[in-house]
C-alpha cells in the first residue's frame, strides 16, 4: 500500500518559491489502477516523482508498505526504484545507444544479475509487450508506440509491484495509446498497482479510480 501524509513539496525557482504539492493525503491500495488527472502545473508529476522515490518531500511523508521513504538513504531509494517500482515516462527515455534488449536489461544489470539470466529475462519482457521481432532494434529504428512498449518492458524487468506512468500515452497516436493501456490493464490484472498521470479523459476512464488535482492539492 502507498500512503502520503500531508505531503508537501516546495521548489525554489531563484527567488520565487513554488508550492508544487500542498498537504496531499492519498491512499493507494495494492493492486489498484488509479489515474491522476488535472491541468499542467497542478502537481501531478511532482506527486508521481515523490511516490516513485525520485524526489524527497519538503514536509510530510510518502509511505510504501509502511516504510517512510523520506528516511531512506540514496542507495536504499535506488534499490526501491529498482526492485519495487517501474517508471514509464512520456518521452520514453530509452538510452539511444542501446538496442531494445539492452535497454530492457539495464535495470537488471544494475541489480547485478548475471548476463545470460539478465538477457533471458529482458527478452521475456519484450515478448510480453509484443516486440519479439524488435529485440535488436535501436530506439531510433522504432515507432513511438514501440519505444513506449520497450520502456514498459524495461519498467517490468525487475518484476516490480508498482508501475508508474507519467503521461505514458502522451507522445503516441490513439491506436498505440490504446495498445499501451491494454498492456497496463493486463499488468493490473496480474496484481500490480498501476498509477498513471494523464489529461486524456478516455485514458483515465480505463482506470479503476480517478483522482483530480489542482494547485498542488488532490480534490475529492
Amino acid at each position: 500500500m502507498i500512503r502520503t501524509e500531508n505531503l508537501t513539496k516546495v521548489y525554489r525557482m531563484g527567488e520565487v518559491e513554488v508550492q508544487a504539492l500542498r498537504d496531499v493525503n492519498l491512499e493507494i491500495q495494492d493492486g489498484e489502477f488509479i489515474a491522476i488527472i488535472g491541468p499542467s502545473g497542478s502537481g501531478k508529476s511532482t506527486l508521481l516523482n515523490m511516490i516513485g522515490c525520485l524526489d524527497k518531500p519538503t514536509s510530510g511523508a510518502v509511505l510504501i508498505d509502511d516504510i517512510n521513504t523520506g528516511k531512506l538513504s540514496e542507495n536504499e531509494l535506488a534499490e526501491i526504484r529498482r526492485e519495487k517500482i517501474g517508471f514509464i515516462f512520456q518521452q520514453f527515455n530509452l538510452i539511444h545507444t542501446l538496442n531494445a534488449l539492452e535497454n530492457v536489461a539495464l535495470p537488471i544489470f544494475f541489480a547485478g544479475v548475471r548476463r545470460e539470466k539478465r538477457l533471458k529475462r529482458a527478452e521475456e519482457q519484450l515478448v510480453k509487450v509484443g516486440l519479439e521481432d524488435r529485440i535488436y532494434h535501436k530506439p531510433s529504428e522504432m515507432s513511438g508506440g514501440e519505444q513506449q512498449r520497450v520502456a514498459i518492458a524495461r519498467a517490468l524487468s525487475n518484476d516490480p509491484e508498482i508501475v508508474i506512468g507519467d503521461e505514458p500515452t502522451g507522445n503516441v497516436d490513439t491506436e498505440a495509446g490504446n495498445a499501451i493501456m491494454d498492456i497496463l490493464e493486463g499488468l493490473n490484472r496480474e496484481g500490480r498497482t498501476i498509477i498513471v498521470v494523464t489529461h486524456d479523459a478516455d485514458i483515465a476512464a480505463r482506470a479503476g479510480r480517478t483522482k483530480r488535482m489542482r494547485d498542488g492539492k488532490v480534490l475529492d
Binding site: N75, R82, F87, I95, P107, F110, A111, R154
Partner: peptide, 12 residues
C-alpha cells in the same frame, strides 16, 4: 541519461 538510469534503479 544519468537521470533516466537513476530513475530505473541505478545507484550512485
Amino acid at each position: 541519461e544519468i537521470g533516466v538510469m537513476k530513475a530505473i534503479g541505478a545507484k550512485n
